[in-house]
């Protein structure tokens, strides 16, 4: 069944996340990061940063940091077992650090299909703000297999 295109323009329920040095430390360990500004608060401060620096893809993790990260797909009636991550991109405006609280405001910006509906694509664009200032644009494409 094709996803109803009426969902283009749908707002994703907004959420806020406070970055913790604890989580960034584990992210650094998992990804083999050796630069201490990404996992050591003291090293970050010595480098003149206000906290541990969130690495470039961490905005995705924060965007997903909610009870039901794919609530928008559930609203459209998609089977999450058939979901794949198709594309991911970011446009960066400001770096963010442990201790920052970020607000995520997302919208469904496109829905399309390929191969006569065998693959459906749901595009979500999220504005990430810190105290009202835009810090990152997060663009995600999820693929739903028939």
């Amino acid at each position: 069944m094709l996803i109803d295109k009426k969902h283009i323009g749908m707002k994703v329920p907004p959420h806020s996340v406070t970055l913790t040095a604890w989580q960034l430390k584990w992210f650094a360990k998992a990804t083999g990061e050796t630069n201490p500004i990404y996992f050591d608060e003291e090293a970050a401060r010595k480098a003149g940063l206000p906290g541990v620096l969130a690495p470039p893809t961490f905005f995705f993790c924060m965007d997903m940091d909610k009870e039901h990260p794919f609530d928008y797909l559930e609203t459209m009636g998609c089977d999450l077992m058939k979901m794949l991550h198709g594309e991911q991109s970011f446009v960066y405006h400001k770096p963010v650090y442990s201790g920052d609280t970020l607000d995520f405001d997302g919208e469904i910006t496109d829905i399309y299909d390929k191969r006569n509906g065998a693959l459906q694509f749901v595009v979500k664009d999220v504005k990430v703000r810190r105290q009202g200032e835009l810090v990152c644009d997060v663009h995600s494409v999820m693929v739903i297999r028939a």
């Binding site: 990804t31 690495p55 470039p56 991911q88 960066y92």
Partner: peptide, 25 residues
């Protein structure tokens, strides 16, 4: 996203992170 994080490391080993304007895969 693990693989994308590795590509992110490749970038931040080459330039300071604030030099990255956009990044997609």
């Amino acid at each position: 996203m693990l693989g994308m994080a590795y590509l992110g490391r490749l970038l931040t080993q080459w330039v300071p992170q604030e030099a990255i304007r956009s990044f997609g895969v």
